[in-house]
Design a protein around this nucleic acid. Structure first.
Lengths: 238, 238
DNA sequence: CGCGTCTATTACTCAGACAATAGAGGTGTG
DNA sequence: CACACCTCTATTGTCTGAGTAATAGACGCG
């Protein structure tokens, strides 16, 4: 991308409060249906002003995690209302170790979306988009997935494909899927389970997209995600 | 669902401000990169307090529509950062007539996600989930898509299938897809283009899921969405 | 012409008050 | 005793006004 994601942003209190509360909620520390302490009490407890606390709650409400009503208070929404596709919510889910079925669900979603996206991208990709995939692939090879640069390149590769579908809602899944890629990859390396080098898999996808071969792109991407799931499964202890 | 969606909620100022601004942004009234007027000026212009205005901005920021930084001000984010899968953002996009390629993209996404979801649901659905689909189907038949009740039943049907995949991230797409269903259906009827009765298509999907036949469920759902796209296409003037 | 410094602008944070709402519990009436 | 209605209170919502912190851009210096 054109700018670094986590640089230059000063730490704002309402943001960090939202993050802390969000993590607590998605990790089950506050169960759905539970009501948070009142604004005055809770904001005092957190040592912040009521305004800052309220802004944090508004952010969580915008992501579907909580609902506020007068007199009733602010309560954690039922899980079905959570916006799990929101990149931030997904990131919060990976702060603590997420439950194994959840990780599996993410791969299942990737297995549905990414092969189809690769097929579309094979037909619609523009030259600059292709160049971006090539660049990402090259960076992956140079740095390896052990380095932050390499992982960034991995995410860029997947993101570029979704972007190349020319489908805005699909592209919106890009941030979700790259987040999933990021956390699962980091997860694997945290466990010191060094997997196969996935460079060949990525290369096959790229070749198919470059050739404009939709069917082959779909197959190659299916293989890629399946193998990534296998790698992760061994780490999850199956 | 267990509760009415739009009932019992008192109109809160920050919510309506967020809605108005959100609509203005997604409809292109504020271009990406444009900076909004300063907090003090803009809140005065909107005749609300700074707190209410700020809470509205926090909500928009949580959905990726704007970014605030000191000195720079609050500016509209680039479209790629927008969380188009957020149900509210999607709803805002349909307040004004959305561009035709966007509607088409939504159907393209549904064509990717829903058949796969139907296939999963055919294998994993529980008896209560099946009952909910049956109920929704029945309601659709009784009320017809011309009535709000019938449309609600249509959404419930699609929602129930996504829920029955047992995949939480996929289920999160439920609110997005039902929103898409809702607006495109309303759109068709607004144009007085009364389409075929889609009840048979839905019935075929249900039968396949009830029978546990994943392949047939996938095909039936593909047919359903394709036909819905055709109906919408004629309205869009092709 | 490059680079550090200064300043003005902007969002951010805080504090305290009042309004509006909804639930609880009491009250009156049949 | 049952039930509808009313009041009362706790909680979020809204407003005002002030002060703080960060930073983009101007400015001056080497």
């Amino acid at each position: 991308m054109t700018e670094r994601p986590s640089a230059g942003a000063a730490p704002r209190i309402h943001t960090s409060i939202a993050r802390d509360l969000g993590v607590a909620i998605v990790s089950g520390q506050y169960q759905p249906g539970a009501v948070l302490p009142g604004e005055i009490e809770f904001s005092a407890q957190l040592k912040v002003s009521r305004s800052a606390y309220r802004e944090a709650v508004r952010m969580l409400a915008a992501k579907g995690l909580v609902e506020s009503r007068t007199k009733t208070g602010t309560r954690v929404s039922e899980r079905a209302r959570w916006n799990m596709l929101d990149p931030e919510v997904l990131a919060w889910a990976f702060v603590n170790e997420p439950p194994e079925p959840f990780v599996r669900s993410l791969f299942e979603m990737r297995l549905i979306v990414e092969p189809a996206a690769a097929a579309l991208a094979a037909v619609r990709r523009t030259e600059p988009q292709l160049a971006r995939m090539r660049q990402a692939l090259e960076d992956m090879g140079r740095h390896g997935l052990g380095t932050p640069e390499g992982r960034q390149a991995d995410q860029d590769f997947h993101s570029a494909i979704l972007l190349a579908t020319g489908n805005e809602p699909l592209a919106a899944l890009s941030s979700t899927i790259t987040a999933a890629v990021r956390w699962t990859t980091a997860f694997k390396y945290r466990k010191n389970a060094v997997p196969r080098d996935p460079l060949d898999d990525h290369g096959a996808v790229f070749a198919a997209i470059a050739a404009g071969d939709a069917a082959r792109a779909r197959e190659a991407m299916t293989a890629l995600v399946s193998l990534a799931l296998e790698d992760t499964s061994t780490v999850l202890g199956e």
